[in-house]
Design a protein around this nucleic acid. Structure first.
Lengths: 147, 147
DNA sequence: CTGGATGCAAAGTTTTTGCACTTGA
DNA sequence: TCAAGTGCAAAAACTTTGCATCCAG
């Protein structure tokens, strides 16, 4: 993954470029996302902020950031929504998530672009995809549990 | 996809096989899932029941059914959780979902099994995956909108 | 200055929990 | 019969909305 600091700088520039104000909460949220570097819930992001701000502001900012394409949204099968700063180097991330502890680990796998073209054939535009893997991580596996 | 009626029968047998009771709400829920045939929210499932039952029962049953592997859970990027009866013919489903109207359409694309083995290399067990596509469907696309 | 952004309060949605009653096996 | 399962009520968790105030540009 690219330099987190770089991702942070680019996100701030993108904010300015979109005519949006670079406020203190927004800087904190972007910094927290860059520091966490892994998909985090609104709650986790709020807890990781350098300064204090209202949880509602975190929701609002994340929604805006997603609209601008600065963050990606992930759903890891537990009903919660997680956000992650987009990698400025263009590669998009997929994860393997532990079904027990919810720990997410980046994985280098991406379906061949051929898959997206299958989707495009249906007349859909602006196609994106999500791909996540789920399993039981080595730490969470009970000893003697069936593989 | 396989015969929905078959999927329904198999699910009921699986319930008995697991030593669980085949109650009226459970039959209704499984029937509704078979009839809907596409990932549906707890609310949609409840609305589609032949008879009346408490919404809480729908939640509890779906959670149990998921644990037994009778239904699969889907998250379509809107924060909601959807459930679908597992196809007894083994093939698992992926969808393309409209970001505007949330309509889900089954799509015949699956990442090469090679991808799951990439995940297995990390020491995870019981690996599964989700893969969903998102786009704007032809009906929702504004005329003249940029592709 | 001044409109976009925030904080606070309140409400909406979805999901979970506790407990007495019901019912399928 | 009788424990698993349900209904009802209440709470918890998560997210959105409205509005007065604040501050980045």
């Amino acid at each position: 993954m690219g330099d987190p600091h770089k991702a942070e700088k680019i996100a701030l520039e993108a904010l300015r470029g979109a005519g949006m104000r670079v406020t203190r909460p927004r800087r904190w949220i972007i910094a927290a996302l860059a520091r966490l570097a892994i998909p985090a819930s609104s709650r986790e992001i709020h807890d990781a902020l350098e300064g204090g701000c209202d949880p509602v502001t975190v929701y609002r900012c994340l929604t805006e950031f997603e609209r601008l394409g600065l963050v990606h949204r992930h759903e890891f099968g537990d009903g919660g929504t997680r956000y992650q700063l987009v990698d400025p180097d263009g590669g998009h991330a997929h994860y393997i998530v532990c079904r027990r502890c919810q720990h997410a680990e980046r994985i280098h796998a991406c379906p061949s672009p051929e898959l997206e073209s299958t989707a495009a054939g249906r007349g859909y535009s602006q196609i994106t995809h999500t791909l996540e893997f789920f399993g039981i991580c080595p730490e969470c596996r009970d000893p003697g549990e069936t593989q």
